[in-house]
Simulated assay, not measured.
Amino acid sequence: MSFQHPLLLAVAVAVGAGLFVAYHLLQRRRAAALAAAGLRPARPRGGRWRRHLPPLLMLAALVLLFLGTARPQATVPVPRASGTVILAFDVSNSMGAKDIAPTRLGAAQAAAAAFVREQPDTVDIGVVAFGQGALTTQLPGNDHDSTVAAINRLTVAGGTSLGQAILASLSAIVGQPVSLPDPDAGEPPPDLGFWRSATIVLLSDGEDTGGPDAVAAAELAAAAGVHIETVGVGTVEGATIEVEGFQLATALNEELLTEVARTTAGSYHRAQDARSLNDVYGSLDLRITTEDKLVELTGAAVGIALLLLTIGGLLMITWFGRIL
C-alpha cells in the first residue's frame, strides 16, 4: 500500500495517537474524580470492554477518516478481457456463394465487423485474408476502426489453403514468419513461445484445395497455446458458383473445420445464415486475464469509517442511552 500524500498520513497517525491518548487520560481523570468523591465507576453488564467498545469504534472511525485524506492506494489484480484475436477470412471463390445472403463472405464480414466493435480496447484484433495463399491485411492492434475497414475491403478470388491461413495467423501473433518444419529433413517444430491469450477465428466453408497441411498447422498452434475457433460459413446442401465461365458446386466441409478446432482445444461453430454468425461471435471464449492496477482506497476507508461510526453510535444509544 502507498499514499498519494504521505505527509497527511503522518498527520493521521499523530491525530489517531492523540485521540487514543486523550481518551485514556479522560478515563483516568474520570476515575480519579469519582475516587475523590468516594465513588466507584459503575460496572456495566458485560464487563469493562462494553464500556469502552463504542467510543473506541468511533475513535477508530475518526482515524480512518483522517487516513482517507492521505489518499491510500494499492496495487490489486483486476480481471479484464484481453489478448489477441486474429480473424482469418476465407476469400476463395467458393465464399462468393449465395446460400447465405448476401454471400458467404458478405455475411461473415458483417458479423465480424459487429464483433470487433463490441470488443474493449484491451483486445488486439488483426485480419488475415486467405485463398490459395494468405495475406495479413491488418496487424493486431486496438484501432478497431481500422480493423473494420480492413474487413470491409475483402473480396473473393482464387482457391483455399486452410493450412496457410493458420500459419499466417500465427505469424501475425508471434511477430515473425512461421512455417511447418520439413519432415524429410528431420527439422524440429519451431519454438513460438506460449500465447495462451491469443485466439484465431477461422471463417471458411472448409473447402481446402492445397497448401500446407491444415491439421499439422493446427498442431503447431496448439503447441504455442493458441486456440483456433472455426466458423463454418455456408450450408451443407451447398450452392453453385460460376468461376471463369464454369459452374462449380460448393458445400460446407464441417469435418476438416471440426478437426482443426479440436486439435487446439477450440470449438467448431456452424453458421448457416447471417443471424447465426452473429450468435457465433457472441459465444467466442475470449481469455480473461488479470492486470495489476493501482486502485485508490479512499472510498473504502471512508465507507468503513462511516460503518464504524454508525455501529459505535447505535451501541452507545442502546447500552447507555446517549451518544457521548
Rank of each mutant, 00 (worst) to 15 (best):
F194C: 03
V116I: 06
L67V: 12
V260G: 05
G46Y: 09
V21R: 03
P54N: 10
L256W: 05
S169A: 14
F246E: 15
G238A: 06
A214V: 01
S146L: 15
V201N: 08
E118M: 07
G210Y: 02
G46P: 12
V260A: 09
R80V: 02
V85P: 08
P190Y: 01
P72H: 04
T264Y: 07
I125K: 07
G158M: 03
L56T: 07
F89V: 11
T84K: 04
Q132I: 02
L135V: 13
I311E: 01
T122Y: 13
N278C: 00
R30M: 12
A31N: 14
R40F: 09
S92R: 07
G238K: 03
F115W: 05
I166G: 00
G83I: 09
T209F: 01
W319Y: 09
L53M: 06
Q247N: 13
L7Y: 02
E254S: 14
G38S: 12
L64P: 05
H24P: 00
G238Q: 04
V280E: 03
L25S: 11
P188N: 04
S283Q: 15
L26Y: 11
F246G: 10
R322A: 15
H5G: 00
I288C: 00
G133D: 07
T298M: 08
D182Q: 06
A251S: 15
D205L: 12
G18P: 04
A61V: 05
L256P: 03
M1P: 09
L8N: 08
W49F: 14
